[in-house]
Design a protein around this nucleic acid. Structure first.
Lengths: 291, 291
DNA sequence: TTCGATCTGAAACTATATTTTCAGAGTGGG
DNA sequence: CCCACTCTGAAAATATAGTTTCAGATCGAA
């Protein structure tokens, strides 16, 4: 039964998470999301905020080794009492036991700060302007990344591809780039990622294409790629991290936000494209096999 | 009635203590003695520990301006929630310029919340354990991603490749996967990314390799990939976003933090590898040309 | 596809919590 | 001492919480 209680209810939930069913996981997440307060109300209230039925709550309580919901709730209260009464424990209720010096926490702080600074620097017009270019179906869009940012370019490409056609991911090998340039027409858009150490090839490409009337949307870092002066819209993202490498987390954030903005603005089309995509996946499924 | 609630329940009790009767004072003291936990149980339990009757509790609740005991209790829960809420959550209105409804701000809020929740759910042992596996040079490491997460797998691979040898990025086409499995030996590590919609092929791969003694490190979402039950270490990342797609920002965060942890633990070697890498870049440069 | 196994929530049911009623106990003024 | 008043909790009444049952939904295997 209920494993020797040195374990908190939260620990129990995490341990047994894999044994939980869909609805139960939804519930578990709701409990953890606002722990432990959401578990201290009535079973009805908890079921409601979790979007599940009350029987599901009871079932999960039993799965976790309690006799019923009231027992689980009593355990939560007991924990709360233990935590609150001991003056030591006040701190860190969120990251549970993670000490401040743990890399996870230091990283979290750095990223939060990066996000804050970046948001402060990005102009709304800059952002909206870029989104407008990207949703313009008359413009073809090309995407290019550098050694590190290639993954981000790829991520952007994968999502944007669902939203619109006329999208090309430029291969990493710069020898092949002239072929792409050959196809670009005035008014087309190049989305480039260039963070330190700034890559010479990317700058050259930017120079070449902007000279031919192609618009440049640039993702760079707080110091600014030399290509920034050529860009129609550029995003200077803060990328500091307690690591030997810079952090791409906030860059990905801007990428996702931009994708979301374009998607929202073209929702009716995107929706249809997503539907068709689903069908295609279903049809492809029969070809796939492994082991 | 109920006085303008900036006041806590405790404040209210102290303010009106003079107006309380003997039994009510006894009750009030019991509530304050173990605040707020004793107020969070049933009215019966509270009456019992206070040594008064339940009607007394109801009467005092009304005296304090609540409609009844449940209302008082709800107020206690609300206070608790406010007290407990995390340090990260205190997002000061970012850019004054950006209206709250702008997608950038909504996205930022979602991501911040995701980060907070994810930190709460990740155990440090889980994290440190994964880092330990990854820095063990006797184990070869394989990395695989799905349709969406492929970019993340790629990002992980690119960085980890600088840190250590014996690293393989598994190609997207699952037809080729058996070839990789052929090379894996007991104790090797598979780093898999699997978020909804969970991919059957990835699950199959996980089953196959874990059966052969390969350790599985899994990045999944808050609902949990079915492969989680096979994983030695798994990270459930919250990926909600105001978008048609889920957000990978926090997943990337965990990836970067993990890379940083491994890198820190093996710094002397990593440093040397980075130095050599720089040299190699310099040497290659002379071959590269564009336009 | 069909079949079986699981999962799920609506609704019936049961248990408990909460409120109300009310009579007795206490108290202080006359 | 009596009366009028407040206070209090037992017990009844009511409302809500919690549990169980069960039929339909869903998912995976054959």
């Amino acid at each position: 039964m209920s494993s020797s209680r040195d374990q908190t209810v939260a620990d129990g939930i995490r341990d047994r998470f894999q044994d939980l069913t869909r609805a139960e996981r939804q519930l578990a997440n709701a409990i953890l999301a606002n722990y432990p307060v959401s578990g201290l109300g009535s079973i009805t209230a908890l079921a409601e905020v979790s979007g599940v039925s009350t029987p599901t709550v009871v079932r999960m309580a039993k799965k976790l080794g309690f006799g019923g919901f009231p027992e689980l709730q009593a355990a939560l209260r007991a924990e709360l009492e233990a935590t609150i009464s001991s003056p030591i424990a006040k701190h860190d209720r969120w990251a549970e036991s993670a000490p401040d010096t743990h890399i996870l926490n230091r990283f979290a702080e750095a990223v939060t700060e990066n996000l804050r600074q970046t948001l402060r620097q990005i102009g709304i017009e800059e952002f909206d302007g870029a989104a407008a270019l990207l949703r313009d179906r008359r413009r073809d869009v090309y995407v290019v990344g550098g050694r590190i940012t290639r993954s981000l370019a790829d991520y952007f490409f994968t999502h944007m591809q669902v939203i619109r056609s006329g999208l090309t991911l430029i291969a990493p090998n710069s020898n092949t780039w002239p072929h792409y340039v050959l196809n670009m027409k005035e008014g087309d858009v190049l989305v480039a990622f260039d963070v330190r150490r700034y890559e010479h090839d990317v700058l050259r490409l930017a120079e070449t294409v902007t000279a031919r009337g192609v618009k440049l949307i640039l993702f760079t870092d707080q110091w600014g790629s030399p290509a920034a002066k050529l860009a129609t819209h550029s995003f200077r993202v803060r990328i500091e991290a307690p690591s030997a490498w810079d952090s791409s987390v906030v860059t990905l954030f801007v990428v996702e936000a931009l994708i979301a903005a374009v998607q929202t603005a073209t929702w009716s089309e995107t929706k249809e494209r997503m539907r068709i995509l689903e069908e295609l996946f279903d049809q492809t499924k029969i070809f796939r096999k492994f082991v």
